[in-house]
């Protein structure tokens, strides 16, 4: 695999009287959230190590207060970390000067916020053009680029509106357009859709997936909503009390929870909708049953009718090219389908 775009090594963010000294005293040992709290420190991010790769969509999940926002703000250096190291495209983020940081944000990073963070006194167009204006692009060029972005998110015709005059979904589209205006390589989204009602949210997710197909960016996405995570994620990281409990493919998280907490977290998920044939298949043994192969990318839910109707104990699994890559044990799959896995 290529070099990670973002790489965190033992990142800490403590809130309290003197985090750096305290952290040095720990010598890399993690005493746990409660001990830290006894000592007067809130560990918003606790000993997080994580690599995020080019073009990957990483979704961060966790309960309220588990440190999701803080982790993302560490990655964008909106907050300074208390310990550890973060590299962005090989450069040490914590060592950047103010000017270098501004350069990085002007050229590489974009961020979308839960409550939009639009400037109330600027029109849609001027909001979207704001990052370009900050880096001194001339008025004509930045307006042209901003218009492109506005069209990309489907807000054409509203560019003269003020944020106040838009619905929540439309405001968030402005936020998305603004964060994309500088063509960032890395895109952070902190609960971008949770302020929206379910219908609009669904629509925005589709929109987002379309954009992602189009742009193929490296994305860190925070959400509270497991369905949302499942729709979007390449990998999901589950946080608790500032630490990452598990970071893996959605299917793995559901099928092989690393901790009890993760197991509880995913307990109510309809596993059949998450688990793909590929996650369950076994290597091809001697004889491949001679029936129509199923696709590795299909979820158990997609296969439900076939599993019920087809009585053969093993089904061949094929990849996108049609080559058989494994076999699916019917019982295993049925267990997942019926929720007794």
């Amino acid at each position: 695999m290529s070099n990670p775009v973002i790489s965190c090594r033992e990142v800490w963010k403590l809130y309290g009287p003197d985090p750096t000294t305290y952290l040095n005293g720990l010598n890399g040992h993690d005493p746990g959230f409660d001990v830290l709290r006894e000592a007067g420190y809130i560990s918003a991010v606790r000993n997080v190590s994580l690599d995020i790769h080019q073009g990957e969509m990483l979704v961060i999940m966790g309960l309220s207060g588990s440190g999701k926002s803080t982790l993302v703000r560490c990655l964008s250096r909106l907050v300074d970390i208390s310990g550890g190291g973060i590299e962005v495209e090989g450069a040490d983020l914590t060592a950047l000067s103010e000017a270098e940081l501004i350069e990085l944000r002007r050229n590489k990073m974009g961020m979308v916020f839960q409550s939009f963070g639009l400037l109330p006194h600027r029109t849609v167009l001027d909001n979207v053009a704001f990052p370009l204006e900050m880096r001194g692009q001339d008025k004509h060029a930045r307006r042209a680029r901003a218009m492109e972005m506005i069209e990309l998110v489907g807000l054409q015709g509203r560019e003269e509106y003020f944020p106040r005059e838009l619905s929540g979904g439309q405001q968030q589209r402005v936020g998305i357009a603004r964060s994309l205006a500088i063509e960032p390589d890395i895109w952070f989204l902190d609960e971008p859709f949770s302020a929206l009602d379910p219908l609009i949210r669904r629509e925005m997710q589709d929109e987002f997936l379309r954009l992602q197909d189009l742009l193929g960016k490296t994305i860190v996405f925070i959400t509270h909503d497991f369905d949302e995570a499942l729709r979007l994620a390449d990998r999901i990281a589950i946080m608790k009390d500032g630490a990452i409990e598990q970071c893996d493919k959605p299917g793995n998280i559901v099928m092989n929870p690393a901790t009890e907490y993760v197991a509880k977290f995913t307990e109510n998920i309809d596993k059949a909708r998450v688990v793909h044939a590929r996650d369950l298949m076994a290597p091809v043994s001697s004889t491949v049953p001679d029936v129509v192969a199923i696709s590795a990318g299909a979820t158990v839910h997609d296969l439900a009718r076939r599993l019920v109707d087809d009585l053969s104990p093993q089904l061949p699994v094929s990849d996108d090219d049609g080559a058989v890559v494994g076999v699916l044990n019917r019982d295993t799959a049925l267990n997942v389908l019926l929720g007794s896995a």
């Binding site: 909106l78 961020m111 916020f113 963070g117 400037l119 109330p120 600027r122 704001f130 500088i182 952070f188």
Partner: peptide, 28 residues
């Protein structure tokens, strides 16, 4: 609101630009 400031920062605004274009107009 802190999100307006953070969004300004993520747009690459210097602290003067933040004051001039984000903080003061938002405190209008």
């Amino acid at each position: 609101s802190p999100e307006i400031i953070e969004s300004g920062q993520m747009c690459g605004a210097t602290s003067w630009q933040l004051l001039r274009y984000a903080r003061i107009p938002s405190a209008r």
